[in-house]
């Protein structure tokens, strides 16, 4: 139904799975996405009674337990609609891959359905928020609706791992040279900066267990972006943002002369472009203050 409406161009709502971090560390990501959606003519309808997705897709063949939380989310979502969207790249990865497994592996699907006492057949579309903007709204539409073009701002798109890999299951964009976020940045009037580390891993949860490993990963990514002229780095993942934004104080301690760079969520950037009040974009929660560079460009 939702899909049919979207084809006809009628305004519609999307079922939305926020995920744990969107309620805590990435509140600014959640809020800006909800507000931008309204301005673009659709609403993010939060899935009721959602629980954690488990945060890692289990890779070993006999690990069913870790598949149960995401399967339950998919089954609950299917009762409410046909398309599920997420913002967090980690949740997106886990949910999309579980959906893929539910479609392809009949034996596991049956076992899982038994455990969760539901009957889900894998017939849900799982789309990232950016995919909705590209496929359902269209970047050309966004270009038209931009109120404050981000002209002069050099933004580097950082994809990380979760949106892209594994390619067969995610199918988000090219596995080595993705351009979706760059197209999005350009639709908002900013200049996109290409850099070789845009699909490198941020070190993920090693920031708790072996912080020095994650700091090193973050340093490589940020210095590569800076070397290529980035003034802000754009991210879609709360985990990556924690590592490449919050770790900048550690990097500065280790590498003297390291210049900090603000890390924004894609929707925060979209918020500026759509003319939302900059005070409502949650910049106070960003570790590296983006206001100086945004002021310099006359965007706030």
């Amino acid at each position: 139904m939702l899909y049919a409406l979207s084809v006809c161009g009628v305004s519609m709502d999307y079922l939305y799975f926020p995920g744990c971090t969107l309620y805590t560390k990435a509140k600014n990501f959640d809020q800006t996405a909800r507000e931008c959606s309204l301005l673009l003519g659709f609403e993010l309808k939060e899935l009721p009674e959602w629980t954690c997705c488990g945060a890692t897709f289990p890779l070993a063949t006999d690990n069913l337990m870790a598949l149960l939380p995401p399967s339950r989310i998919l089954a609950k979502a299917r009762e409410q609609g046909t398309t599920l969207t997420t913002l967090c790249a980690v949740c997106f990865n886990v949910i999309k891959r579980t959906n893929h497994l539910m479609q392809k592996d009949h034996e596991k699907r049956e076992k899982i359905n038994n455990y969760i006492e539901m009957n889900y057949q894998g017939d849900l579309r799982v789309l990232h928020y950016l995919e909705i903007l590209k496929q359902e709204i269209g970047f050309s539409q966004i270009r038209e609706r931009v109120k404050t073009p981000l002209s002069g701002l050099k933004a580097a798109a950082y994809y990380g791992c979760m949106l892209l890999r594994p390619f067969d299951e995610m199918g988000f964009d090219d596995k080595e040279r993705p351009t979706l976020i760059e197209e999005f940045i350009e639709a908002m009037g900013a200049e996109s900066v290409d850099f070789p580390y845009k699909i490198e891993c941020c070190g993920s949860f090693q920031s708790v267990g072996s912080p020095e490993v994650a700091t090193e990963c973050a340093y490589k990514i940020l210095s590569s972006a800076l070397k290529n002229g980035a003034e802000v780095v754009v991210s879609t993942c709360p985990m990556c943002t924690f590592n490449i934004d919050h770790k900048q104080s550690d990097i500065k301690e280790k590498y003297l002369g390291f210049k900090t760079v603000p890390v924004l969520y894609v929707t925060q950037l979209l918020g500026i472009a759509m003319g939302l009040n900059p005070q409502c974009l949650g910049f106070e929660q960003n570790f590296v203050d983006p206001f100086p560079v945004l002021k310099e460009k006359g965007l706030v």
Binding site: A60, N63, R165
Partner: peptide, 29 residues
């Protein structure tokens, strides 16, 4: 096996389609 964060870069690039991320998860188990 514990430092692997399952970023799947290895599996994406392996010319013989060995998914080393999957391998690491199996070894951890």
């Amino acid at each position: 096996i514990w430092l692997c964060v399952s970023c799947e870069t290895c599996g994406t690039r392996c010319p013989n389609q060995i998914d080393i991320g999957v391998l690491m998860d199996a070894l951890r188990e």
